[in-house]
Design a protein around this nucleic acid. Structure first.
Length: 301
DNA sequence: CTCGATCCCTGGACGC
DNA sequence: TGCGTCCAGGGATCGA
């Protein structure tokens, strides 16, 4: 669930609270979501957290070369490196006092030089953590698409043009755009009045530009609101976001469209639950709308 | 190239 | 109350 705005919110929070801290030691819980757990234990201690960046849905903790106490480390720690962190669905990362009991599902603890622990908690372990030096990191980031906040009209159009996938699949494809997930895909398609199952390559230039523009507006607003807290998203200071109050499509099955009052419906597109207004966002021929669940048939709105 | 299916994983919602 | 089942979904992978 953490998508670009949520990850940006976490990265900004981390920047405020851990920048400049040095990692003293590492302790790990379950490690099946970590690329090379031993590398964390071997290479993180002694390094300083110099920057926190976001790349799509990833966070990049930029680390100094390890302090070497007068000699050059022989294990590669003389060069800078990065810790790549993906929050998956349920990942949270934040510092806590080291003496505070560890929450359930805490899988990575980095003891910092100020007595706190930077803890990574992830019940479902859909996240990912990797220790990477410069070259492997560059290679890792190579396959990602454009930054949706920066992408130009022309680049966005060219990344859609000629594709045969559905527009929602393209929005979710991290090699097309980096950072968009299910919520912001549905929200931007609703705002652009484009059905998620439309074929991306069939959008005309005006539709593509509208989609690009509203996607940027939505992401920017969501960042200002510190992201959407559905399920259990909390930022690095334990605060929930507010953007879920502004959702117009996502999660609103059975409720009224804010534009036309028609009932928001759900279908599966690109393997994901997709919410749309059947009136504002006309479906392509043959699209299967899921029947409204009993429980959601009425209710407020 | 794109699709759907399957897997990973846990907690919460729901039905009986 | 409790138990079983389904679903949430980002990403990898595999076969069609």
């Amino acid at each position: 669930m953490p998508e670009l705005p949520e990850v940006e919110t976490v990265a900004r929070g981390l920047r405020r609270v851990i920048l400049g801290r040095r990692i003293v030691s590492v302790s790990l819980g379950k490690t099946d979501f970590i690329d090379d757990p031993a590398a964390l234990e071997e290479h993180l201690p002694g390094r300083q957290i110099e920057a926190v960046e976001r790349y799509g849905k990833f966070m990049l903790l930029r680390l100094s070369a390890a302090a070497s106490a007068g000699r050059i480390p022989s294990n590669g720690d003389a060069v800078p490196a990065s810790l790549l962190v993906h929050l998956g669905m349920t990942g949270q990362i934040a510092p806590s006092p080291a003496e505070q009991p560890r929450e359930k599902h805490t899988h990575v603890c980095l003891l910092l030089d100020d007595g706190r622990e930077l803890r990574y908690v992830d019940a479902r372990r859909f996240g990912r953590i990797a220790y990477l030096t410069e070259a492997p990191l560059a290679e890792e980031l190579l396959g990602f698409g454009a930054d949706p906040l920066e992408v130009s009209t022309e680049e966005f159009a060219s990344r859609i043009r000629g594709r045969r996938a559905r527009i929602k699949a393209l929005l979710l494809d991290q090699s097309v755009l980096r950072g968009v997930g299910n919520i912001y895909a549905d929200e931007s398609l609703w705002r652009a009045k484009i059905h998620p199952a439309r074929l991306g390559g069939r959008l005309n230039a005006k539709q593509a530009e509208t989609l690009r523009r509203v996607l940027q507006e939505i992401l920017q607003k969501a960042i200002v609101m510190r992201g959407s807290s559905i399920s259990d998203f909390l930022d690095a200071e334990g605060e929930p976001g507010e953007y879920q109050r502004h959702h117009r499509a996502y999660g609103r099955e059975g409720k009224g469209c804010y534009r036309c009052k028609a009932t928001i419906r759900r279908g599966i597109v690109a393997g994901r639950s997709s919410y749309f207004c059947p009136k504002c966002q006309p479906a392509p021929r043959g699209f299967a709308v899921l029947p409204l669940p009993r429980a959601k048939r009425k209710r407020d709105n």
